[in-house]
Amino acid sequence: METPVNQSERTIRTVLDANELTPMDAAGVLCFTLAVSLTNGLWGVAAGVLVLAAAAASDGPFAFVVAQLTAVSFFADAGLVALGSAQLAAFPLLAGAACGWPPDRALLVRLAAGYAVALGVAWALWTTLRWAWQAALVAAVLAALVAYGLHRYERVALGFVDAPEANR
């Protein structure tokens, strides 16, 4: 079977051309670099370069994940404000992956609201519960419950479930 040309010639140039950096990605990289470099100096700039490379090399949430992993190193034992600003700075990276460019405004608003609620719940769990595993478990269960609830709603809304079964 013939190999496609774009796969056989996989170079840095072709990858960068394929994953075009959107303004949303650029804003995300800029905000994150600014937030990290203000608190950590040159190491923050280095982390920003790493995130920029990740954003340029992929069109998914890879840059967001890389940003979060680098943030773990820089914001250990940080306060709410520092953590909040880092997460706020990382949001455009997530929005770039979720909404593309130009973004659908309604979707962007829903994502922002969901992101804010999710961070709020996570922070509340983290500060309220005694152990990290408890917070992680409760967060995972909550996410699973919401997803399952939406799934059941979809089944009923599309008429896949008869009324008696739906009432059970």
């Binding site: 967001f64 949001f91 979707l107 994502l111 996570a122 799934h151 809304a157």
Partner: peptide
Amino acid sequence: PTPLLAACGLAAWLVVAQVDAVGTMR
């Protein structure tokens, strides 16, 4: 807490995408 916040951010994206998909399917 930072990785947990990141995980919740991704979960928020999945939930929002699910809500959007339900609307499209309806």
